[in-house]
């Protein structure tokens, strides 16, 4: 047996005072418990933070602040989210299943681990799970894997839909440790795998995700999340696109485009945003703007379709916003 200690915490201070070595915070549990059963994650100490006061979905001046312990389902339904940030609500309701969304939290969603089958199977090598052991996905089963941000050590896709929408909205993650609080742009929070794919983000030992802040973006009312997948529900993205447009007098004044299912982290496409700006909100604009969306992509043996599907996914989102 792998003995663990299980401690239910009630304050943030308690959570931060706990020793970091071999410990894991338990929020919704939809990643941690799953991966503990597979022995992919083997913490010695499980710190239950479900009672921590990290709830709340509120507007602070112009910014939307979401507590780390809010459930995905509650955020998806919230009036501050559905009206002002449809892309967020849509990304959430297209994630997982209702049962999982009722359990999983916003903080946990951002820290969820990849669905790469080799990462999840302890009988195979994986540089993310066992650094230096190798990456069978590069020459193995890689239909669902990334085409952006990959390295010779890892090609695992970042699985979160929510994170893609938040990157499009230039959201930040709020972190706290014993030495204080800091805010990190989500786009910067995630690291590329490089030669250290086991280091997935900027979270320091002993640091806790407190919440997420989403800056005001009035034109995010015109935003959407398109998720392309083999089956209609309860499935990760082949490709996805979080898109917002600011349309004035028929012209695109500004745009945000981030994509999922294709990157080792949520992938912002600033080039597509630039190509849309100043152009009419029309299909021909969309198609020319995405022409170079997949430049620099490195498709693998089973996912050669992803560059084309990605371009079409972005167009689909823009067509939806135009309609």
């Amino acid at each position: 047996m792998r003995p663990i200690t299980f401690t239910a915490l009630s304050t943030v201070r308690e959570a931060l005072e706990r020793p970091a070595g071999g410990s894991a915070y338990l929020a919704g549990g939809t990643t941690l418990i799953d991966l503990m059963k597979l022995e992919v994650m083997t913490p010695s100490h499980v710190l239950d933070i479900r009672r921590l006061p990290l709830r709340g979905i509120r507007r602070q001046s112009d910014t939307l602040v979401i507590g780390a312990m809010e459930h995905m389902s509650d955020v998806a339904d919230h009036e501050l989210v559905t009206g002002a940030y449809p892309v967020l609500a849509e990304a959430l309701v297209q994630s997982a299943s209702p049962q999982i969304r009722n359990m999983a939290t916003i903080g946990g969603n951002l820290l969820q681990r990849t669905r790469c089958g080799y990462f999840r199977d302890t009988t195979t090598p994986c540089n993310k799970r066992a650094p230096g052991s190798g990456c069978p996905a590069i020459d193995g089963e890689n239909r669902m894997h990334a085409i952006f941000g990959t390295s010779d050590a890892c090609v695992a896709t970042h699985p979160s839909d929510l994170a893609v929408a938040l990157v499009a909205l230039e959201a930040s993650v709020l972190l706290r440790s014993r030495s204080g609080e800091r805010s990190v742009r989500l786009d910067d929070f995630y690291r590329l795998p490089g030669s250290t794919p086991h280091q997935e983000n900027q979270l320091l030992p002993g640091e806790l995700v407190m919440g997420v802040s989403v800056p005001a973006l009035s034109w995010a009312r015109r935003s959407t999340y398109v998720k392309v997948r083999d089956r209609r529900s309860y499935e990760f993205a082949l490709t996805s696109a979080a898109v917002a447009v600011d349309v004035k007098h028929g012209l695109i004044a500004d745009a945000r485009v981030a994509v999922g299912g294709v990157g080792t982290k949520p992938w912002r496409l600033s080039g597509v945003e630039r190509a849309l700006k100043g152009r009419p909100m029309r299909q021909d604009t969309f198609e020319s703007a995405v022409a170079r969306a997949a430049d620099g992509a490195r498709p693998l043996s089973h996912n050669g379709f992803k560059p084309a599907l990605l371009r079409r996914t972005i167009v689909r989102a823009l067509v939806k916003l135009a309609g």
Binding site: E141, R232, S233
Partner: peptide
């Protein structure tokens, strides 16, 4: 997997069956 004989998606998250929405 042709080189290992391993079923790469041997679980019901990755082996896709229809869900109600389908």
């Amino acid at each position: 997997e042709a080189d290992t004989g391993r079923i790469a998606n041997a679980n019901l998250a990755d082996y896709l069956l229809p869900v109600n929405a389908d």
